[in-house]
């Protein structure tokens, strides 16, 4: 299903169930309005997020990826966000090396009570991605999809 052309960009969020997903819920309950671009994938803990998920999401054509977990020292599982922080910080420094603009990936910490903060995070990140515009990766992959396979039918992207 396509995003609304001209209006939205493809932004994917990975949120831990206990803090940030709850924070996004709190924002909803408080009717803190947000841009509609973001699609949230729920995971139990930010420590469950493999940096490769983010790389694949970006290479598959997402224009931005946002990760959010519990504040450090406040992880539901004790240590998950410490692992996440190390992995994500390494990833953040690595992404420009493979040609992804730095602003397309962010990670942040939002607790279940911080509905308003979640609104600010989503607004800020969406604006940041919109300033960068559509990801070139999506054009590359989009073009790949147009190339017919040997049998002449439309090629299915990887």
């Amino acid at each position: 299903m396509p995003i609304l052309a001209g209006k939205e960009l493809r932004i994917v969020g990975f949120l831990c169930n206990w803090c940030s997903y709850g924070g996004a819920d709190t924002a909803g309950v408080g009717r803190f309005s947000q841009p509609t671009d973001l699609r949230i994938i729920r995971v139990p803990c930010s420590g469950r997020i493999d940096p490769l998920f983010i790389v694949k999401t970006l290479l598959y054509g997402a224009d931005g990826v946002l990760v959010s977990g519990c504040h450090p020292r406040d992880c539901h599982y004790g240590q998950g966000n410490f692992y996440a922080r190390r992995r994500l910080e390494a990833l953040k420094r690595f992404l420009p090396i493979i040609g992804v603009e730095p602003g397309r990936f962010e990670y942040t910490w939002v607790s279940a009570s911080e509905g308003q903060r979640w609104q600010q995070v989503v607004q800020g990140f969406t604006e940041q991605v919109h300033a960068l515009g559509p990801s070139p990766a999506s054009a590359v992959f989009g073009a790949c999809r147009e190339i017919p396979d040997e049998k002449g039918g439309p090629r299915v992207a990887v």
Partner: peptide
């Protein structure tokens, strides 16, 4: 919480809901 309560744009919300 993640769609209908955070925006009033019915077209965008419907599209987002279908994606979710």
């Amino acid at each position: 919480e993640h769609v209908s309560w955070i925006g009033k744009d019915r077209e965008a919300n419907t599209n987002k809901a279908a994606e979710l």
